[in-house]
Amino acid sequence: MQEALKSLLLSLADDLLVIGHRNSEWTGMGPVLEEDIAFASMAQDKIGHALAFYELLHSLGEPEPDILAFTRQAADFRSCQLVEYPIGEYDFSLVRHFLFDYAYTTRLEALKSGSYAPLAALSERFLRELKYHTLHARTWVAQLGNATEEARLRMQSALNEALPMAYGIFEETPHTAGLVAEGIQPHEQELRDRWLAGISALIAGTPLKLPQPTAGDIRPYLGGRQGRHSEHLQPLLTEMTEVFAIDPAAAW
């Protein structure tokens, strides 16, 4: 059981570290000052969450958080592929943030009432912070989705691109059944359906269309949960770990 739990914690922590790092790339680069601040703040929260999940792993016998975060190669990461893609244009980063944060919220809502108490406690705490992330996401999706033709087209194109990636958040692993049996979390598909219902309702308030799986136009980006990543993750890790690689004992 311990192994299944660790695999869940690792995928949570890795998702948050990687998307936190990506979002931090908007620092100083945001399209407007407010968005610069928003993406930087959300990155800070996400990396704080990642740290807490790595600490929980450490309490279960895994190495220290810094070792987990800074010494593994891409193939050791269990993050979904959605989070590793470059920030691209602002529309892509915004839509990714919308899809990811609603998925993360859905998962934490489930973990909050799950059977593993330390994870339930963290989930309750993080959900309070996450409300601001989803508020930010849905406000901009509604604003830009209902704005000019150019804005709508760009948002739609970002949604078409990011949704299949986001399906990969809910990739089943050999450990999923064990987690369900222990009452720690529901099936990934169940989580995905809850997430889809939530984002569909929000998208319905705009002229945007959520690509439909029935039309066969969604090919989920799978593999991340098993260590198979796009070519984008390793360069991110190399950059993120540059200082640590030079001097692992550096303090600042």
Partner: peptide
């Protein structure tokens, strides 16, 4: 509410 994020994590504008 102008921005749910501000100069520190605990502040909104």
């Amino acid at each position: 509410l102008k921005n749910p994020f501000g100069p520190t994590l605990c502040r909104a504008i």
